[in-house]
Simulated scan of single mutants.
Amino acid sequence: MKKLFLASAIAVSAFSPSVMAADEVNVYSYRQPFLVEPMLKEFTKETGIKVNVKFAKEGLAEKLKQEGEYSPADVVLTVDISRLAELTKMDVVQPVDSKIINTNIPSQYRDKEGEWFGVTTRARAVYSSKDRIGKLPASFDYLDLAKPEFKGKICTRSGKHPYNVSLVSAMIAHYGEAETKTWLEGVKSNLARKPQGSDRAQVQAIKEGLCDVSLGNSYYLGKMLNDKDQKAWADAVYINFPGQEAKGTHVNISGMAMAKYAPNKDNAVKLMEFLSGDVAQGMYAQDNFESPVKSGVKRSDLVASWGDYKADTLSLDEIAAHHAAAIKLLDEVKFDL
Rank of each mutant, 00 (worst) to 15 (best):
S315Y: 05
L136S: 14
Q204T: 11
V76Q: 09
V293Q: 10
V251A: 04
R132G: 01
K2L: 10
E69S: 15
D227Q: 07
F335T: 03
D199A: 04
R299Y: 01
S218H: 06
K194W: 06
V19D: 10
E46G: 01
E69L: 03
Q286F: 03
A325I: 00
A9E: 13
P195N: 05
G134N: 11
L302F: 13
K151Y: 08
T78W: 02
F289V: 01
M258Y: 07
N164G: 06
I105N: 05
I10W: 05
G248L: 02
F150I: 13
A259S: 15
Y261A: 11
K45Y: 08
Y127E: 04
G48A: 07
K50W: 10
Q196F: 02
P38Q: 12
E46H: 06
A262K: 14
I239Y: 07
A85I: 00
H161L: 07
R83Q: 09
E179N: 04
I154M: 08
E290I: 08
E42P: 00
A201Q: 14
E113K: 15
H250P: 01
A61W: 09
M272A: 08
S71A: 07
H250N: 09
T78F: 00
G248A: 03
K328H: 06
K247I: 08
A325M: 03
Y309S: 05
G209P: 11
S71L: 01
I49K: 02
